[in-house]
Structure formats: C-alpha cells, structure tokens
Nucleic acid binder design. Structure first.
Lengths: 248, 248
DNA sequence: CGCGGAAATTCACATATGTTATATGTTTGC
DNA sequence: GCAAACATATAACATATGTGAATTTCCGCG
C-alpha cells in the first residue's frame, strides 16, 4: 500500500460526479467536495483495504479500481456482500459511528481517498446538501444489498449471474467506465463471483458459458462484453430503478 | 386499519427502550422520544402497512405485533428482506428522503406509531443524541440484512432456519417478549419463513421437523420453544454481535 | 522465452432442495 | 356451527447445483 497526499485531478471528479447524480450541489459545495479527501492510498490487487475490527476513522471513497466487502463464514468460506466501484463510499459505518464488521479487499489495483471525519463534519455543516447526498448514497447501497438478497433467495444461477452482470454494466456505465459495444473490465475471478452469488466456481463457469452460448454475455480475460444489454436485462428481470435515488 | 391519537402507555416505552439500547439519552430527550409519535395505526394480520410507491411521509415505528418488508419477484413470488418487531423503525427511507421501494405487511395484529417528519426534525435539533440513536438503529438493520444475505448465500436449510430462530429469539428477548424456557410467539407461516430464507414450504417443514427431532426447536401453533438456545446457536454459528451497536 | 502457479474448463457423480400431489388438521368468515 | 380456505404434514419423484478430480489455458515473473 502506497500513501500520498497529492491527488490526480481525475480522482476528485469521480466522487463529485457520484454525488451530483443523487443531489444538486452549489458551486461552492462542489468545490468543497473536490477538496475533501486529503489522503490517498493505492492498493495493489487483493490487498486488505479495511480489516475487520481495525478501524482508523475516516470516510473512505473508492476513486479507481475495484474492491469488495465480505463476511466470513464459520468454515472459512466468504460471502461477498457488495462490490465497490469508483465513486462508491467503501462503508457507511462512520455515519453512526458504528464500525462495520466486515473486511474490504481490493480486487484490482485501486485508489482510495480518505476524508478526515472532523473535516467532513465542518464541510457538511457548511453545506448540508452534501450530507443529504451522502445519505442518499447510503440508501442506494442498502437497496443494492437487498437486491442481491433477492438474487440469492429467488433467482436461479443463470439469472443471478446475468443480473449481476447487468448491475455492474449499469453502475460502471454511469461512472463512465463502459466502452462502446457494452465492453467493460471486470477484474473478478469466477470463484469470487461465486462467493457473491452463493454458487460454486464450477457452476459459475457453466452459467457463464450458457450466457455465452445464448449470445448474451462474453467474459474473457477480465473483460465483459454485453452485445445486447436490453435482452439480457429482460431475461434476468433487471430493473435498474433500485440503483437510483428515488426522489419525487 | 384503525387510527387513533391516544397511545397506550406501554407503546411509548417500547421505542424508547430500543433507543436506549444503542445510545444514552438525557431525561429530557427520553421524554421527547416518548411524546414523539402522535398518531397510531392498528392493523390486523396481513394488512399492508406501506404499499410500494405510496408514501405518506412520516417515520413509522413498530409498537406491537409483527410485520415484514419484502420485494416482488417477477413471477409473483416474494422475497422477504426483514422481519419487523416491536421497537423497530419500519423503514429508514425518511433519513435520505428516498422512499423505500418495498411493501410492508403485518403478519399479526400490529400497532404502528407515526412521527411527523417536521416534528421529528424539531426534536432532533433539540436533542441530536436522538438522531445518533436512530442512525445506529439503521446501521443495525443494514447489518441484519447482510447477515440474512450470508444465510442465503452460505448456509444450508437447517442452518438458515436455525439461525433465523436464534435471531428472532435474541431480538424478541431484548424487547422483553420471550417467556421463561425460551418460549416466544412467532406468528409466521412456514411458507412465509420460506419466502425469507429462499426455501420451499415443503423444505421449511422438513427442516423444522429435523430441528424438533434434534430437540433444538419446537414450533407449534405460532409458538416457538428453544429448549437449549446455546446449543442451537452453536449449531448454526449464530453470533448476535451483528445486532449490536458496536461502539468502542 | 520458458517456467510455475493460478484460473478456467470439463467430466462423472453425489445430494440438497424443489415440485406435485394428497391427506389431515385448523382458522376464519358467514 | 358449517363450509371454505388455509396451514401443516408426508410421500415419491425431478432437477439444479455441489463436489472432487483431471486437463488445459492463461499470465506474471525471472
């Protein structure tokens, strides 16, 4: 892990854009958001970003890369509870000062911005709209967790995998990380996807090949291609509204 | 549904006790909490408490009875995402002003207290400790959702059912709703339990009888008896720490 | 450039859980 | 107080998914 205090200009926009998606911010507030993170940590793939129990305070914002949150099962397996993409807040425990009892691990080389909590308090007092935006992000995350619950409880393997691909496509697209033709990077192992979806590695593999044979998804070398996202969404009953801040 | 403005004195204590579990409150704040709900709705079993999309503003607090939150599956099935017991806030959408896209339905005759949002804002401004407590409750709920996710993703039927029984036992106990000998009311249908755990009704039934044969749980006529909660907890790797506000 | 280890793939087989059906209580509404 | 609707229980059978192992492909690294 490498630490630095000099941001790349792209990073500050990543988080700002996310907040602007869920709430309008005045120019002054936008500037405050840009300058909020003062510490940056770079992780290589499969490094712990947060280790259970160990909490150094601060709000952590994903700025580049990919990570996931997970819980341990008694027999050593893991259940991944969320994938964290650029723009996401890593965990919202700071809101209620309750540390999350979960590990966060990077899946690809990643950058995380850290906002000191006192600094955040000051900013938020000055621009309460920022707090509103953050709370909306928290609500969306809760909503995504519940949708994953629906997948595990009510969808078969094909729909689970397809639905997750739709979700990643949708989220990465909004973050500007999908290239033309529905092509995006998903630096995930099939085994890791299984850990999120409650499926064995072997069955994830079978399912992916089924999707490939259906012409709905191609996944090779960490690159996913969705030639026809609408069809896939229809097949899996993917409705992205759960990822939006649903105001009036 | 019957509406009234005259509370039973027990009701106000239910919610107050919950908040006191997660954060200390001054006497004045406690009094404010007691007087916060001004409208009370009584539902009979299987009535909609909140219907998707329909949102009349206000924070809803469960004061007696049992309810659940659920999402619809495309084929008409439902995925229950949470059980709501006395003391629980029905949904935390009001925090970020994003209405939850879920239905809430009563499973037994229930009372719900409604706190007007303007009134809540006033109270919370006067006693910020109350907002802290509410946010901690929200964090606990998120944590419970994730634990259910772990169940669906990583536990077999026996452990899923056992774990849920442990959780309900634990939560109801803290609400003072467990009688001596580990006896408590669980006015749930086996089919409804299946809708929460991603199991068919038939298999829930099989599993319950297995638990009965093991002498770990008896469930008859909406009454659950856990003769040896510790053994059951051990079997299912139930660790209640995820239900606590984990401050230092 | 080639080596070593990790992913991906494939196969045969095991099994937990789903499905359909029927019988038997048990509420509930009229 | 009856009848309809619902909840539980049980059985036989179907199947989606898991397991263990072997093979191949890929990728980072020296």
């Amino acid at each position: 892990m490498i630490e630095s205090t000099s941001p790349s200009p792209r990073w500050s926009e990543t988080w700002l854009n996310r907040l602007l998606e869920v709430a309008p911010l005045s120019d002054a507030a936008q500037d405050a958001v840009r300058r909020a993170p003062q510490l940056f940590r770079q992780f290589s793939a499969r490094e712990h970003v947060v280790r259970d129990g160990v909490r150094d305070p601060g709000m952590r914002v994903m700025l580049s890369g990919l990570a996931c949150r997970y819980k341990h099962l008694p027999d050593g397996r893991r259940q991944i509870t969320a994938f964290i993409i650029p723009g996401d807040v890593c965990d919202f425990g700071f809101i209620s000062d309750s540390p999350v009892s979960q590990d966060i691990i990077s899946l690809a080389p990643s950058t995380i911005g850290i906002v000191d909590l006192d600094r955040l308090a000051t900013i938020v007092e000055l621009y309460p709209e920022i707090m509103t935006a953050i709370l909306r992000c928290a609500a969306i995350e809760q909503s995504a967790t519940q949708e994953l619950l629906v997948s595990l409880g009510g969808r078969n393997a094909l729909h689970r995998v397809g639905h997750l691909l739709c979700e990643m496509h949708h989220r990465l697209d909004r973050a500007g990380l999908v290239r033309a033709g529905g092509v995006f990077e998903l630096p995930l192992t099939q085994s890791e996807m299984g850990e999120a979806l409650g499926l064995s590695t072997v069955h994830v593999n079978r399912t992916i090949q089924m999707l490939r044979r259906l012409g709905l998804a191609i996944w090779r070398d960490r690159i996913v291609t969705l030639p026809d996202p609408e069809s896939l969404a229809r097949l899996c009953a993917f409705d992205p509204s759960y990822l939006k801040a649903q105001r009036d």
